[in-house]
């Protein structure tokens, strides 16, 4: 009887295994097919995107050359590249780029950190958070860009006022995001930690902060764009340096080619900083792929 009892499972596992193997190979084949599809799809997308980009630049160049678009207003790609090159070599374009991105990044980092700390701090006291929340929302609604003249007078026309602008643009968004994270913390997780003898600071560090990370991260992409907008407006109001100031100056002397250079440069800065936040996001969430 014992022998029988042993035999049956062995046979059964044998069958199971062969089934399993078959299933696996099928799955593998499917995966490979999917991958191939994915690769060819990706290639098509990239090629398509390049075609669209090249077409736009070509049309821009072509239409301004034949005069359908007025090249005084629209400039054209080759002139923009030329003007940009001259501005970089002979002018201060590179310093201006460093100035603008520096102010943006510093303001963004400060705003995100301070905002996150404020948002997370709301976990500690519901009295404090309930008193403060309406003011946060109200302050979020204030058009902070309109405050720029005041800030420039308060903090001078130098680097600091630009950083402050970028900071103000980001801090409340970051705080509200972190606060949403805090509000969504699973109460049972807190309970479980208390049952393991935890004090409040343990719960804060081991549950509240990590479970709010995805919420805080979700505000990064919006915030980097807001920070850049803040810096540029700060430069518009009054500045001696920066891409924003360059655009303003070029507009005043009617050098529209240079305005276009500024706009294009800002677009690239914006894209690079966006990619930077995507990278930070990936890094912060690298352990979260299974949630």
């Amino acid at each position: 009887m014992d022998a029988n009892a042993e035999k049956i499972p062995v046979e059964r596992t044998g069958i199971d295994q062969s089934l399993e193997v078959k299933k696996n190979t099928r799955v593998k084949a499917a995966v490979i097919e999917d991958d191939r599809k994915g690769i060819s799809m990706r290639r098509k997308v990239v090629i398509g995107q390049m075609i669209v980009g090249v077409t736009i630049i070509f049309l821009w160049e072509f239409l301004t050359r034949i005069g359908w678009l007025d090249s005084y207003y629209w400039s054209n790609p080759s002139t923009i590249v030329q003007t940009g090159w001259t501005a970089a070599i002979q002018g201060t374009l590179l310093q201006d780029m460093a100035y603008t991105s520096g102010a943006t990044i510093i303001g963004f980092i400060l705003g995100t950190l301070v905002g996150s700390v404020i948002g997370l701090s709301f976990w500690w006291s519901s009295l404090y958070s309930r008193i403060t929340e309406p003011y946060m929302i109200a302050f979020n609604a204030v058009p902070k860009l309109a405050l720029a003249p005041v800030l420039v007078i308060m903090f001078g026309i130098g680097f600091n006022s630009k950083v402050i602008m970028a900071f103000l643009m980001t801090v409340i968004v970051a705080a509200l995001a972190a606060y949403s994270g805090v509000k969504s913390v699973d109460k049972d997780l807190e309970k479980m930690l208390f049952s393991l003898g935890a004090k409040r600071h343990h719960v804060f560090m081991k549950v509240v902060v990590p479970s709010s990370v995805p919420w805080m991260v979700s505000s990064l992409k919006i915030n980097i764009a807001l920070a850049l907008a803040g810096t540029i407006v700060g430069e518009f109001i009054s500045s001696r340096q920066g891409v924003g100031r360059m655009i303003l100056y070029a507009g005043q002397v009617m050098d529209l080619n240079l305005v276009w250079v500024g706009v294009i440069v800002l677009s690239f800065l914006s894209i690079f900083m966006y990619l930077g936040t995507v990278w930070i996001e990936k890094w912060l969430l690298k352990n979260r792929k299974y949630q």
Binding site: D186, K191, S195, P210, V213, R288, Q291
Partner: peptide, 13 residues
């Protein structure tokens, strides 16, 4: 006391 709540409550991260 040790207490295991009704859910497993493992920290997903």
């Amino acid at each position: 006391v040790g207490y295991m709540l009704q859910k497993d409550l493992l920290l997903p991260w």
